[in-house]
Design a protein around this nucleic acid. Structure first.
Lengths: 252, 252
DNA sequence: TGAATAGTGTCTATAAGACAATATCCC
DNA sequence: GGGATATTGTCTTATAGACACTATTCA
C-alpha cells in the first residue's frame, strides 16, 4: 500500500532524487497453425528463473522509443522485420523481477507460419510452445504452455500472465481488427482465414455465415488467383485490403 | 533508429550501467453527462507546458506498483477512492517531455457525475473539459477538448492523444465490459444507461432493441425501486450484477 | 386532464444457421 | 470416375428496428 501523506507524495513526485525503475519490453511472438496458437520462448541462462522459458525481450534505451525497442528485440533476437506488432499491457509489480525493479511493456507480434519458422531458427535456445486455452470466450484465465511433447514449460517471470492476456485480447479484436490477416500470408483462402478464427476463438465457426460476413464486409478482395496442388477443388485466393484505420503497426 | 549490432544490444541490455527513464502514470478522469464525455484537467504551474492543461498524474515510486501509483494519484490529487480504473496504453516517445525521459502508463478512471463533481472540488487549478468527438465508430482521430465556454483548451504533453485513445477504447468495450455501469450510480434507469451508451458512441441507439438486449443479457437486475420526482411515469431502477470476469479494477 | 416518458406487443427487415445441389480440381 | 472441398442457392430461425398502444406519474 502507498503512503497518503503529502510528504510521501512529494517524495515520489521528485524522480531526480530517487531511484528509477528499469523499463523493458517483452514480445509474445505468435503464429496460428495445427489448430492452436504457438509462441516462441528462449531458455534463460542466468539468474533469475535460470533454465526457465522467457519471451524475447530487452531493456528500453534511454533515447529509444518503446516501438523502436520492440523492433530491435524482434530484429536482433528473432531476425524479424516488418511484422505486425501491438502493445498489450504494462506490468509493473515491484516483485516481478527479484534483481531489481523492472517495469515491462508487453507486446505481441503476429506472423504467418513460414515467418514463425524463420524466427524459430534465429532465436537462441528456443522452444516452440503450443498454447492450450481452457476457457471459452473472453473470460480470461490460465493457459497451458506446452512443449512439442505436450509437457508444460516452466515459464519465467510473469510471462504466462502475458500470454493469458494476449489470447483474451486477440479474441476480442478478431472481428474488428486485422489480427487475423497478420497470421496469414498475403494471399490466403477463406478456409485458411476461417481456421485462424477458429484457432483463436477455440471453437468452430459457421462456414456459411463466415463466408458471407467476410465477403460482404469489404475488407478482403480476390487476387484473381486460386490455390493449386490441392487434392480437391482449389479455392480462390484473397488478400486483405488495408483499411484507413488500423490499430496495429508494423515494426521496422 | 536503434542500433543493430550485438554491442549496441548489450549496451542497452545492461541497465545498471546506463540511464533509466522515469516512469509515471497519468489518469484521464471521466464522466458522462449533458450528452458528452467530460474530463478533468489541472493547469500546469511549471515548465514545461506552463499554463497548459494536463491530466492528473505522478511518478511511480521505486517500490510502488503501477496500480498503487494510480490509486495514490486519484486519492491525493482528486480525493477519490474506489473508482473504476483501467490501464489504457503506455506512451514513451523520447521527446514527449523536454526535461527528461519520462515513460507514462496512461489510465482512465470512470465515475458517475456526482463523484466527478467531488473530484472537481478537490483538484487544484481545475478545468472541466467537454470532449467533442468528430469521428464515428472506432476509427479514432482528433478530439476537441473544450472548456465550459466552448473554447479549446491547450493540452500539455501528449495528453490529447491519451483522450483520443480513451474514447476509441470505450467505444470498443462498451458492449462487453462494465464501463457503462461505472459511469452511473449504483441504481440507474434503463434510460440513463442508454444515454451513457449514446454519449460514448456519439450517436443515438434504438430504444427498443437496447432494452431487449440489456434485459435479456442478464447483467442487470431490478432493485425493486423506481425513480421518483419525475414529471412523468417513473422508470424502474436497475443495478449492475458484478459478473465473474471483469477486466477493470477498483482502485483502493 | 394533459404532458411526458415507461413499458408491452406486434410486425417487418436483416443477419445467422442449416442444408441441399452443383462445380472443379487431383488422383 | 471417385474423393474432397469450393461455391451457390434456398429455406428456416434469431435478432434488430419500427411502430402502435397502454401505463403511470406529477403539474
Amino acid at each position: 500500500m502507498s503512503e497518503s501523506t503529502e510528504a510521501a507524495f512529494l517524495k515520489n513526485y521528485n524522480p531526480e532524487a530517487f531511484d528509477r525503475p528499469s523499463v523493458a519490453v517483452d514480445v509474445a511472438l505468435l503464429s496460428a497453425f495445427d489448430g492452436a496458437l504457438h509462441a516462441l520462448f528462449s531458455q534463460r541462462k542466468d539468474h533469475p528463473y535460470c533454465g526457465d522459458w522467457a519471451l524475447p525481450g530487452g531493456f528500453v534505451g534511454i533515447d529509444e522509443s518503446i516501438e523502436d525497442a520492440v523492433s530491435r528485440v524482434l530484429r536482433v533476437k528473432a531476425g524479424l522485420q516488418d511484422v505486425y506488432v501491438e502493445q498489450l499491457y504494462t506490468f509493473g509489480a515491484p516483485s516481478r523481477d527479484p534483481r531489481m525493479r523492472i517495469i515491462t511493456v508487453a507486446h505481441y507480434a503476429l506472423v504467418p507460419p513460414a515467418t514463425f519458422e524463420q524466427a524459430k531458427a534465429a532465436i537462441d535456445a528456443v522452444a516452440v510452445a503450443r498454447l492450450g486455452v481452457t476457457w471459452a470466450g473472453e473470460i480470461g484465465g490460465p493457459i497451458d504452455v506446452l512443449d512439442p511433447a505436450g509437457l508444460p514449460l516452466k515459464i519465467a517471470f510473469d510471462h504466462s500472465e502475458i500470454l493469458q492476456l494476449v489470447v483474451k485480447r486477440l479474441r476480442g479484436k478478431l472481428d474488428y481488427s486485422p489480427v487475423g490477416y497478420a497470421l496469414l500470408p498475403a494471399a490466403f483462402t477463406l478456409r485458411a482465414l476461417q481456421e485462424v478464427h477458429e484457432t483463436i476463438r477455440g471453437q468452430r465457426v459457421n462456414k456459411d455465415s463466415f463466408r458471407r460476413r467476410l465477403l460482404a464486409g469489404g475488407l478482403i478482395e480476390t487476387t484473381g488467383e486460386r490455390e493449386h496442388s490441392t487434392r480437391h477443388r482449389p479455392a480462390a485466393l484473397y488478400r486483405f485490403r488495408h483499411g484507413p484505420a488500423e490499430s496495429g503497426s508494423f515494426s521496422g
